[in-house]
Simulated assay, not measured.
Amino acid sequence: MSEPRAPSPDEARTLLREWASVTRDRDRRVRLAKAAGLQKKEIHQLSGISRPTIDTILAE
């Protein structure tokens, strides 16, 4: 299998903007998940966010 082609600079900018728009809402989503009753372990497993980061978000 060959490596996927590198994106153009404009494509890379678009990818980063999309990523930023999704992650901007990260803390609110973690708090909502916890308020809904999800355990920290499940939040970690579903989101890929580290447990120490989840602790920091929930402590704010």
Rank of each mutant, 00 (worst) to 15 (best):
L16D: 13
E42P: 00
I49V: 15
A20T: 09
L15E: 15
S8F: 07
H44I: 00
K34V: 04
E3I: 09
S47E: 07
A59E: 05
G37P: 08
L38S: 04
A33M: 15
L58S: 05
P7T: 10
L16P: 00
L15F: 14
L38R: 08
I54D: 01
D25M: 05
R17H: 11
Q45V: 02
A12N: 05
H44L: 00
L16V: 11
E42M: 10
A59S: 05
A35N: 06
R28K: 04
R17T: 14
R29P: 01
R13Y: 07
D25F: 04
R17W: 08
P9M: 08
R5K: 14
A33T: 05
T56C: 08
E18H: 12
R13G: 03
L32H: 01
D10K: 10
I43Q: 07
P52I: 02
R29S: 01
T14W: 10
E3M: 10
S21H: 06
R29V: 00
W19A: 15
S47F: 06
V30W: 02
R26F: 03
S8K: 12
A20E: 14
D10H: 07
L16C: 05
S21C: 02
R51S: 09
W19L: 15
I43S: 04
E3W: 10
P52V: 06
V22Q: 03
E42W: 05
A20C: 06
V30Q: 01
A20F: 09
P52E: 06
A35E: 13
R17A: 12
R26D: 08
A6M: 04
R31K: 14
